[in-house]
């Protein structure tokens, strides 16, 4: 067992015209909730997407549970099954019902039987507060409901880590809480979570550490208490002054 379930060492990533990540090094401990925040275009999502190799890195190394993600020979499918991902735009499969969305990968990747997968899916739907929506198609669900199904879909794989990429940014205000409540429950149960978000309330309630990422660089890392009451860096102060009121 590695104490740090995710290790990011000196990662650089460049898109055509932007330097997305500059020498980023971070470690996430088992059971920790790491909250990444910062201005748009600062590299938050890119960093998150590098962790399960939806983006490749130009330089540096990332290991997840001891497996080098950045090694091109790594069994990436096996690794991704252990890392749940929740997207800003939900990305539910529109041709499948909520239940089928949750059972598909269980059957095809985890090789569970249809019955077992459905049982797990129903239990998870219950847990995210949508037991009656099993047979609904994504187009019949509200944004908040879609995102909760998406979380259930990721959880069905029994991941060791959950990555959240701005999970509430595309939601109407009155639906944000229902999604954050589910995430809060997860955090309390000890799930390792990396959350990219602007929801400072969630950070205050659930984060163990916060990372301020700006212009592709880690500017500051600290506990919510440190970040909110006494940020060390000028840029952190300025950013917080803009988002908090």
């Amino acid at each position: 067992m590695y104490e740090n379930i995710i290790e990011i060492r000196h990662v650089h990533k460049r898109f055509k015209h932007v330097q997305a990540l500059v020498d980023v090094s971070l470690a996430v401990r088992r059971g920790e909730v790491l909250f990444i925040f910062g201005p748009s275009g600062g590299g938050k999502s890119t960093l998150l997407r590098c962790i399960n190799r939806l983006e490749t890195v130009d330089e540096g190394e990332i290991t997840v549970d001891g497996i080098p993600v950045t090694d091109p020979h790594a069994d990436i499918d096996a690794l991704r099954a252990e890392v749940g991902m929740v997207f800003q735009l939900f990305n539910l499969f529109p041709h499948l019902t909520a239940l089928q969305n949750i059972t598909l990968a269980q059957e095809k990747v985890r090789k569970r039987s249809r019955e077992e997968a459905a049982e797990i899916a129903l239990r998870l739907l219950n847990r995210v507060g949508l037991p009656e929506k099993a047979d609904a198609y994504p187009r019949q669900l509200s944004g908040g409901q879609k995102q909760r199904v998406a979380i259930a879909r990721a959880l069905a794989m029994n991941p060791k880590i959950m990555l959240f990429d701005e999970p509430t940014s595309a939601l109407d205000p009155e639906m944000i809480k229902e999604v954050l409540d589910v995430m809060l429950d997860l955090a309390r149960e000890g799930m390792t979570m990396v959350v990219v978000s602007h929801e400072m309330g969630f950070a205050r309630a659930a984060a163990d550490r916060m990372v301020f990422l700006d212009a592709g660089q880690v500017v500051e890392v600290g506990t919510p208490e440190e970040i909110f009451s006494s940020p060390k860096e000028k840029r952190t102060k300025e950013f917080l002054a803009h988002v908090l009121y």
């Binding site: 939806l54 499918d77 991704r80 991902m85 997207f87 990305n91 499969f93 990968a105 990747v109 794989m157």
Partner: peptide
């Protein structure tokens, strides 16, 4: 996003 979601779940 559909391909990304499917691959994130470990599908080939």
């Amino acid at each position: 996003g559909q391909m990304e979601a499917a691959r994130s779940l470990g599908m080939s």
